[in-house]
């Protein structure tokens, strides 16, 4: 038994099975929600029977990626900042038989990699992408993100953020992804099931997770270092789609909708279409 302040040598069985022990402990700050999301991902992988031989982890740059990259016991491909979807496109087209679990953050996906994100959705690339949305740039020290709420005080918006945030899920739906959903990090079961569904869906599965960053979002936006306060803020600012039906437009302002937005497994994507296309045009 370890006590508070000591590092436990006991690893979770899923970590033992799927992650590189020499890469543990990971570099997440205390109270960060990324570990909880990785737990869901590993559970989904385990329950679906994916293996290190047939599955690759792909990352961009930021907390989502720096914490998860080179941890999977199989192959790990970590891209430049924002280029995760471009790299995933090259990988998946080269190896359409393999599964790609892709990790990105709100800065990586919504800002510097926004163009690659919408085009991957348009192509409906058959990969599973998990967006870790903490509403701020964590790795670089609390700068405003394209997902930060209006009014948020950050290190680069000392007088409050005047820009509206992106709704990344609505973008993914509009651009054509097969499966789009958003969960809170605390929706453990729903998130795990959604990941399983996403991995099994042909085409792009885009799953956004709202998670707590006490170190930066807590410190600068909410003036707290307590992860529970950030989780409470997420709870207070999110509402299920069903609950949302009963609320007025004013009551919904500034709230994240939670749930599955689209599931269209019938929509084909570039991987399938390219293989079909080769049947006609391959000569040699």
């Amino acid at each position: 038994m370890s006590t508070v302040g000591e590092t436990s040598n006991v690893l979770h069985p899923l970590v033992e099975k799927y992650l590189r022990k020499e890469r543990m402990p990971h570099m997440a700050c205390s109270g960060c929600g990324i570990g909880q999301v990785v737990h869901s991902v590993l559970l989904a992988i385990d329950e679906l029977g994916l293996t290190p031989k047939d599955t690759v982890w792909v990352q961009g740059v930021g907390c989502s990626s720096r914490i998860t990259y080179s941890t999977w016991v199989g192959d790990n491909v970590d891209a430049h900042h924002g280029r995760m979807f471009a790299v995933a496109t090259g990988l998946k087209m080269a190896r359409p038989d393999m599964n790609f679990i892709c990790f990105t953050g709100d800065g990586d996906c919504g800002a510097i990699g926004g163009n690659h994100f919408i085009h991957a959705c348009r192509r409906n690339l058959d990969v599973t992408a998990i967006l870790f949305n903490n509403g701020i740039y964590g790795m670089t020290g609390g700068q405003v993100a394209p997902t930060s709420p209006v009014g948020a005080v950050t290190t680069t918006t000392p007088y409050g953020n005047i820009e509206d945030p992106f709704d990344m899920c609505q973008m993914a739906v509009a651009a054509g992804a097969s499966y789009v959903a958003r969960w809170r990090v605390t929706d453990f079961k729903a998130l795990t099931n959604s990941l399983k569904k996403g991995i099994q869906t042909k085409g792009l599965a885009f799953i956004e997770v709202l998670l707590q960053c006490p170190t930066n979002f807590g410190r600068y936006v909410l003036k707290t270092s307590n992860p529970q306060d950030v989780l409470k803020w997420i709870k207070d600012h999110s509402v299920s789609q069903k609950e949302a039906e009963k609320l007025s437009k004013e009551e919904l302002a500034g709230k994240y909708l939670i749930g599955e937005f689209v599931h269209r497994p019938e929509r084909t994507g570039i991987v399938e279409r390219y293989q079909e296309f080769l049947k006609t045009y391959q000569k040699y």
């Binding site: 891209a79 430049h80 790299v87 090259g90 080269a94």
Partner: peptide
Amino acid sequence: HAVGAASVG
């Protein structure tokens, strides 16, 4: 980036 990744593939 897709070219580099395809080569990794």
